[in-house]
Nucleic acid binder design. Structure first.
Lengths: 245, 245
DNA sequence: TGTAGTTGTCTAGATTAATAGACAAATACG
DNA sequence: CGTATTTGTCTATTAATCTAGACAACTACA
């Protein structure tokens, strides 16, 4: 159990935090799949070159995330950590994309309303800035665990009842169908990564400093007219994106 | 100068570090473009709800990164920090993608060699696991600042001299052309985000805790046979990705 | 039942991070 | 030249993080 990569001091990130982050990726990489549990805290401490108490702080943090559970006298078992892959293509739909990787995929409508389009939204929807748009905020769950939160904007003149249909059907695809739009295409997706803010952490049960993958997407009808623009944040620990040309 | 979003205590990330990260994204968003410099340290301290000394620690950190420079009696001027967008499509090429956003785009060959394909690489290149592949490692620079580092794998039987051509031409596109492959397509790109490891931080001059966008891509010839698979890490502070369907 | 292995808890001390205030030093500008 | 503005440096104090060691509590297993 020699120490592999030493932990960094005076980096502005506490040691327990660095250790928690590294254990999290080790779990995601399947490093402890054989045993299903972590090495003893004493061994981990030696491996990272820190005190056992520091490792314990890291494990407590991961336990609060629900990723591991420590049992006195037994060890620290791994409770989750599988990462899902969401395909992004011309026909990207959230539930269909991860549907075969999990037993339950749901979305929950958080909020909806009507407002004047901001400059950015207007440009993406190709409408005038003062026109009305419907805003819908929802979050996505896989096997009961929150993995994403989104804001969607629709042109209000074309889809005045979209929010009601989303609430009724629980799906944007089905809501579009109810608005006489049976099919639509993903025009573009812009991907970036950053630290989660307070609201995202609350919605997705993330720890401070967690990373989100943010996508900004535009969907169009088959004639190429924008019907929706969206901003979705995924928990980077749980989701990766597969872009297909 | 009211405080906007309070800084988080007891998160495992020191306050100066959080403040440095937030100032960095503000700069990237062009928030201080008008003046070309940051507000006085005293105002920043009030804005983030911390002591001036804590803000000074953050500014010293950003100064070490080369992003800002503090001048006594004058203020703290901004020296860089624009964020670039890299398009990802069927015809993704690094230098062409960001070429019009910067005055200088270069890549540097770090290493190349021949080895047996790993299971993952073999699957992506659709070859047998024991077959030989050429591995090429390079880093990408925009205006002299490192923004990416990549590993590329090529089937050795089809492109035995690719490493030499890359070294000679400084471009994978031109190296393929020299190997009688004038055109190729991006089949798929998988995007994920995580914290940078030690080597990535060294190559891209990142601070501990920095975020990288990681892409795993497969390129094919016009018949759909894989000619290259790659793993590229971008500094998320400097690069975002635009996916075009 | 006993022993090895493992996590939980406690105390104490050392190091690092953050706050607070005062004043020096440089710049900009009337 | 003088004044306001802004960064640089110093000291002191408080709070948070990490280390160190000892021992209790629980589990598994021979």
């Amino acid at each position: 159990m020699a120490q592999q990569k030493p932990v960094e001091r005076h980096s502005g990130v506490s040691l327990w935090r660095q250790i928690a982050d590294r254990i999290r990726v080790s779990i995601a990489d399947g490093e402890f799949r054989e045993t299903g549990r972590l090495p003893p805290a004493f061994d981990l401490a030696e491996r990272f070159g820190v005190n056992r108490h520091t490792v314990r702080a890291a494990l407590a943090f991961l336990a609060e995330e629900g990723l591991v559970e420590s049992i006195q006298g037994h060890g620290t078992i791994i409770k989750g950590g599988r990462q899902l892959t969401l395909p992004i293509s011309k026909r990207t739909r959230f539930s269909a994309g991860v549907g075969d990787q999990a037993s339950s995929v749901t979305t929950r409508l958080l909020r909806s309303g009507e407002l004047q389009a901001s400059a950015e939204v207007a440009a993406q929807l190709q409408i005038a800035p003062e026109q009305l748009v419907i805003e819908v905020e929802e979050s996505g769950y896989v096997d009961g665990r929150p993995v994403s939160c989104s804001q969607h904007f629709f042109p209000a003149d074309r889809f005045p009842d979209i929010a009601r249909h989303i609430a009724a059907t629980g799906s944007i695809t089905r809501a579009f169908a109810a608005c006489d739009l049976p099919d639509y295409l993903r025009q573009s997706t812009e991907v970036s990564a950053r630290h989660a803010d307070a609201r995202e952490r609350e919605l997705m049960h993330l720890s401070p400093g967690a990373i989100v993958l943010e996508t900004r997407a535009i969907n169009t009808d088959l004639e190429g007219r924008p019907v929706q623009c969206s901003r979705t944040r995924f928990s980077a620990d749980r989701i990766s994106l597969r872009v297909t040309a």
